[in-house]
Amino acid sequence: MTRAVRLACAGLFALAVLVTPVVPPGVAAAHAVLVSTDPVGGAEVSRGPERVSATFNEQLQTNFAAMTVVGPDGHLWSTGETQVRGAVASVAVRPLGPAGIYTVNYRVTSADGHVVSGSWPFQLTVAGTGEPGPAVSDHSAPTPPLPRRYADPGDDLPIWPFVAGAVALVGAGLWLNRRRS
C-alpha cells in the first residue's frame, strides 16, 4: 500500500468520523397501544353503558377515528360520531337490547400516522328495551390496503448513508487532488 493510498484511507476514515455525528438519527416511531377500555374487555354488565371508550398510551390524531358497537343480533348499537380527546377515543351507545355479547370495534390513527385497529367484547347479562340501529353488513369483508403514504417507514431505505458516502468520496477526491498539486 502506497503512502498516498494510506493517507486517502485515513482521510476517508476521519471524514466519516466527523460526518457521522452530524447526521440526524431516524425517528423512532411506535404505534399507539391500547391500554384500557370502558367497559373492560370481557366484562359482564347488567345495564348497557352510555358510552364506550378506549384509552391508548399516546395522543391520537382526530382524523379517521371510528368506533362501532355491534350487538349479538348483528345490529349497530353505537350512535353518533366517534370523539377523540387526547389518548381516548369514545362513541355514544343507544340503550342496549338483547342479552348477549356486544363487540366494540375501533380504528384510530396514532400520533405517528399509523392506523391501529382492534376490538373487544363485553356481555350484557340482562336484556334491555332499546331499539337497534341498522343491521351491520358483512363485516368479514377485507379492508382495502392503505395508500403508500401510510405504509411503514421502516420499509424505506434511509438516505443518510448515501449522502455521507458521497460527501466522503468528494472530500477524498479533493484532498488527493490538492496533495498531487
Rank of each mutant, 00 (worst) to 15 (best):
V93M: 00
A111M: 06
G80F: 09
A99I: 00
A99G: 05
G97Q: 08
T103E: 07
V108Y: 12
L96F: 05
S90Q: 15
G86T: 05
H114R: 15
G113V: 14
G100Q: 02
I101V: 15
A111H: 14
P98Y: 07
V91M: 07
R107I: 04
L96E: 13
L96G: 14
V108C: 03
V91L: 07
T109M: 15
V91I: 10
V84N: 08
V93N: 08
V93H: 07
A111S: 15
G97Y: 05
N105W: 13
V93A: 02
I101D: 13
T103V: 15
A92E: 15
G80L: 06
G113R: 15
P98I: 13
N105E: 09
G80W: 02
V93K: 07
Y106K: 02
T109K: 13
V108S: 08
A87L: 06
A99H: 08
R85M: 09
H114C: 00
V88D: 01
A89T: 02
S110R: 04
Y106H: 06
P98D: 12
R85P: 00
N105L: 15
V88F: 07
A87E: 01
G86S: 10
A92V: 06
A87W: 01
G86F: 06
G97E: 03
Y106T: 09
L96V: 11
V88E: 08
H114L: 09
Y106E: 09
A92T: 14
T109S: 11
